[in-house]
Every structure is written in structure tokens, then in C-alpha cells.
């Protein structure tokens, strides 16, 4: 292989890798756009916060109270906005929300309110010097509240292998 050819193929490879990266970024959340993408991103941010705290609860990461404070803040910030993220008619397509969500709107928003309250409670505990046990217990309450909506109002798209 000549030096020139080598360089050319390297350029191609870099281009392929680059385009693969950008296209997967764009394809994240199944190519969602507009409000659907906004809510998926918001959910993802909450999920990331939950992951950090979850890893600590499971003992996979060193326990730090500050992480619970931060995580609880993230969820408390995003959670109250959830109803705005689900305007009528924003289901279908790449969205994983079930039509039932809009039919049971009051119930949906009451679970959202509960989630916000649970997150705020976790935040208070983390600043009041609560021990690991108390934080774990409250984190589990928050998780169960999150799960409640996911059980009733979301249909997971098929997992890609």
C-alpha cells in the first residue's frame, strides 16, 4: 500500500466513524423530534440521576450524601414539567406513551405530583444528615413512584439486540 493510498483510506475511515457517531446521536431516542424528543431527553436526565443514586444504593459505587442531594434536585426540577411535556396528540410515532395516559390524565398528573414530592423529600433528607438506610428507603419510594407511570402509561419499544 502506498503512503498516499494509506492516507486516503484513513480519511475514509475517519469519515465513516465520524458519520456513524453523528448518525447515532441523531438517531438516539428513535429519531424523536420536537416535544417528544424534549420529554425523552428530560426523562433521560432523570434516569441518569437515578442511575448514580441507584448504583450507590446497590453498593456498586461509594455512598455520598451529596450525590443524593444533587440527584433529588435533578428529579425535582424535571418532574413538575412532565405534564407540559405530554400535550394532547403527542402520542404515536416514535413516542412510547400509551393513549391511556391522556384518558387518565388526572391520575397521571397525580402520580407525577407524587414523584415530585418523593424527590423533594429525598432532597430534604439528604441535607438533614439522614443516614444511608433512610436515604435508601426514600430512594426506593421515589423509584416506585417513577415505576408507577412506566407500568401504566408507557409501552417500551422492542429492545434492539
Amino acid at each position: 500500500m502506498s503512503k498516499k493510498q494509506f492516507k486516503f483510506s484513513t480519511v475514509i475511515r475517519v469519515a465513516v466513524i465520524f458519520s456513524a457517531i453523528t448518525s447515532t446521536t441523531a438517531m438516539g431516542h428513535g429519531g424523536a423530534k420536537g416535544i417528544v424528543k424534549e420529554r425523552m431527553d428530560s426523562m433521560k436526565e432523570m434516569g441518569d440521576a437515578m442511575k448514580v443514586m441507584g448504583d450507590m444504593v446497590k453498593g456498586k459505587r461509594d455512598f455520598e450524601r451529596s450525590a443524593f442531594k444533587q440527584g433529588a434536585e435533578t428529579v425535582s426540577k424535571h418532574s413538575p414539567k412532565i405534564p407540559e411535556f405530554f400535550p394532547k396528540g403527542s402520542g404515536g410515532g416514535v413516542s412510547e406513551a400509551l393513549p391511556k395516559l391522556w384518558l387518565e390524565w388526572d391520575q397521571f398528573t397525580s402520580v407525577v405530583d407524587r414523584t415530585t414530592e418523593e424527590a423533594q423529600k429525598l432532597g430534604e433528607l439528604s441535607t438533614n444528615g439522614a443516614d444511608r438506610r433512610a436515604l435508601t428507603k426514600q430512594f426506593i419510594s421515589l423509584s416506585k413512584s417513577c415505576k408507577s407511570c412506566h407500568t401504566d402509561y408507557r409501552k417500551k419499544k422492542k429492545e434492539k439486540h
Binding site: 442511575k51 415505576k147 412506566h150 407500568t151 401504566d152 408507557r154 409501552k155 417500551k156
Partner: peptide
């Protein structure tokens, strides 16, 4: 119901 990535299991498994 929480998965390792912070997302949640739902539907029937919920």
C-alpha cells in the same frame, strides 16, 4: 422496577 441505567421497567412486568 428500576433498571441499572436509571430507566424503568414497565407494562406487564410493572
Amino acid at each position: 422496577g428500576m433498571k441499572p441505567d436509571g430507566d424503568f421497567l414497565g407494562g406487564s412486568m410493572g
